[in-house]
Amino acid sequence: MRTKTFWMETLERAVKTLAQSLIAAIGAGAAVPVWELGWAEILGIALTATALSVLTSIASAGTGAPGTPSMVMPAVTAEDGLVQGAQAAELAGIPTANPADPLHETSAEYQGQHRAGE
């Protein structure tokens, strides 16, 4: 919460919430001409939603990705350069094929080997 990234992302969320709230409140009065809308009430609703957005971001700090107001951890993808599971084992030279797997015999590494009883 003490990083520039946190506050920039919080500001982005707050501005989006302000815009969405204004549009929703104006849309709710669609039957009334724009110049007759209660702008004080509309701004009050939008600013309340914006304050709630900022408070939600502060409350979310530390629950997701470090240094961000997100409650969600970013997904790890292959593009991140991280290798996990069977792919990591194969790269380390650890065989991962299951001998009971019917596809086992199609692997070039295991051709010529047969299971007992065949």
Rank of each mutant, 00 (worst) to 15 (best):
residue 2 R to F: 03
residue 3 T to C: 00
residue 5 T to D: 09
residue 7 W to R: 02
residue 7 W to K: 02
residue 8 M to G: 00
residue 8 M to V: 08
residue 10 T to S: 11
residue 10 T to P: 01
residue 10 T to N: 01
residue 11 L to T: 12
residue 15 V to L: 06
residue 15 V to F: 02
residue 17 T to M: 13
residue 18 L to D: 00
residue 18 L to K: 01
residue 18 L to M: 07
residue 19 A to D: 08
residue 19 A to K: 13
residue 21 S to K: 08
residue 22 L to I: 13
residue 24 A to W: 02
residue 24 A to V: 09
residue 24 A to H: 03
residue 25 A to W: 05
residue 25 A to Y: 09
residue 26 I to M: 08
residue 27 G to V: 11
residue 27 G to I: 12
residue 29 G to F: 01
residue 31 A to L: 06
residue 31 A to C: 02
residue 32 V to E: 10
residue 32 V to M: 11
residue 34 V to L: 14
residue 35 W to H: 07
residue 36 E to Q: 15
residue 36 E to N: 14
residue 38 G to V: 14
residue 39 W to H: 04
residue 40 A to S: 13
residue 40 A to T: 14
residue 40 A to E: 14
residue 41 E to M: 06
residue 41 E to S: 12
residue 43 L to K: 08
residue 43 L to S: 04
residue 44 G to N: 08
residue 44 G to P: 03
residue 45 I to V: 11
residue 45 I to M: 07
residue 46 A to E: 04
residue 48 T to N: 11
residue 49 A to I: 02
residue 49 A to E: 14
residue 51 A to H: 05
residue 51 A to I: 09
residue 51 A to D: 05
residue 52 L to M: 11
residue 53 S to E: 07
residue 54 V to N: 02
residue 54 V to Q: 02
residue 55 L to D: 13
residue 55 L to I: 08
residue 56 T to D: 15
residue 57 S to E: 00
residue 59 A to K: 11
residue 61 A to W: 07
residue 62 G to K: 04
residue 62 G to N: 06
residue 63 T to Y: 11
residue 63 T to M: 14
residue 64 G to A: 04
residue 69 P to T: 10
residue 71 M to R: 13
residue 71 M to C: 03
residue 73 M to D: 12
residue 75 A to L: 15
residue 75 A to Y: 06
residue 75 A to T: 14
residue 75 A to W: 05
residue 76 V to D: 01
residue 76 V to R: 09
residue 77 T to S: 11
residue 77 T to V: 15
residue 78 A to F: 08
residue 78 A to G: 07
residue 78 A to P: 03
residue 79 E to N: 11
residue 79 E to H: 12
residue 80 D to C: 08
residue 81 G to M: 05
residue 82 L to C: 14
residue 82 L to P: 02
residue 83 V to Q: 02
residue 85 G to V: 09
residue 85 G to K: 04
residue 89 A to N: 08
residue 90 E to Y: 05
residue 92 A to P: 03
residue 94 I to M: 07
residue 97 A to S: 14
residue 98 N to M: 05
residue 100 A to V: 05
residue 101 D to N: 15
residue 101 D to K: 04
residue 102 P to S: 03
residue 104 H to P: 00
residue 104 H to K: 03
residue 104 H to A: 13
residue 105 E to C: 08
residue 105 E to S: 15
residue 106 T to N: 06
residue 107 S to K: 15
residue 107 S to D: 12
residue 107 S to G: 04
residue 107 S to W: 11
residue 108 A to H: 05
residue 109 E to L: 10
residue 109 E to V: 14
residue 111 Q to E: 13
residue 112 G to Y: 12
residue 112 G to N: 11
residue 113 Q to T: 10
residue 114 H to G: 00
residue 115 R to E: 03
residue 117 G to W: 06
residue 117 G to L: 13
residue 117 G to V: 09
residue 117 G to P: 01
